[in-house]
């Protein structure tokens, strides 16, 4: 087993070399998702007094210092003031968890903290508290560029995400890249096709009448091409999230966004 793991890590090491010398393409001029929204929606995102997602941020701020979790420890009990301690944290996710070797996104890390450190039950994916905490933590990195690691232990996951992005799937037999690289700016029903940049998520979406995670958005995309909708937090979506984060790393994080 140890030998296998070693061999696997060697293979991953080789992959990462290959990945670094021949990285997949990114949009030449990166544009955040909100530029494809109407001027009114853009204005609503830009104004914290009007952005409905800030309601969730406010709830996240309360949860940060709430001691209701399992053994009465709050997030603030370990991490202190989120404005200082969480600055830039969201830019580094998804990342490989050193202990388990698994790729974790921010939601995964919050739930790991809850189970391992706070000895509480993990939040359900897409539940209001998890969305609120994710939005609150992501907000602390507003305006900062992405800084995800795609080499070393993350190389295999990055490749899985890239492969997901370029592989045709579903009854419509479409790959992500066909819309979000090749058809950007064109119309798809009432929407303008965006570059698929992920820096605005979690976001408030009018269609949902609520806040939603990136994975909820990805599930909507999967449904759109009539492919299987993977579960929230599935490894495939987390790997894709890593690829998307690398792909939008020229862009500052602007979550929480507002979408049609």
């Amino acid at each position: 087993m140890v030998g296998l793991v070693f061999a696997a890590s060697q293979a991953v090491g080789l992959c990462s070399l290959a990945a670094q010398t021949n990285l997949p393409s990114r949009p030449a001029i990166a544009k955040p998702g909100n530029v494809y929204q109407s001027p009114a929606t853009q204005a609503q995102q830009a104004d914290d007094g009007a952005n409905p997602a800030m309601l969730w941020v406010g709830q996240g701020e309360k949860l940060w210092s709430s001691t209701d979790a399992g053994d009465g420890k709050s997030c603030a009990g370990c991490h202190g003031d989120a404005v200082a301690s969480m600055k830039g944290v969201a830019t580094r996710y998804p990342q490989i968890d050193a202990k388990s070797g698994a790729l974790l996104n921010l939601e995964g890390r919050i739930n790991q903290c809850r189970t391992d450190r706070q000895h509480a039950t993990p939040y359900a994916y897409e539940s209001a508290p998890l969305l609120s905490l994710t939005a609150y933590i992501t907000l602390q990195s507003r305006g900062m560029p992405r800084d995800v690691k795609i080499d070393g232990a993350a190389a295999a996951q990055f490749e899985a995400g890239r492969s997901f992005f370029v592989t045709r799937q579903g009854q419509l037999n479409l790959a992500c890249t066909q819309c979000h690289d090749q058809s950007v700016g064109q119309k798809l029903r009432g929407d303008t096709i965006s570059q698929g940049q992920s820096g605005g998520w979690p976001a408030y979406r009018f269609e949902w009448q609520t806040m939603g995670s990136l994975h909820r958005r990805l599930r909507a995309c999967s449904l759109g091409v009539r492919a299987e909708q993977l579960p929230f937090g599935s490894p495939e979506y987390v790997a894709l999230e890593l690829y998307l984060a690398w792909r939008s790393q020229d862009l500052p994080l602007d979550a929480p966004g507002v979408r049609r």
Binding site: D47, G49, A50, P52, L55, Q59, Q209
Partner: peptide, 9 residues
Amino acid sequence: IKTLIQHEM
């Protein structure tokens, strides 16, 4: 003055 309330309506 701008106001928001979190309500499902």
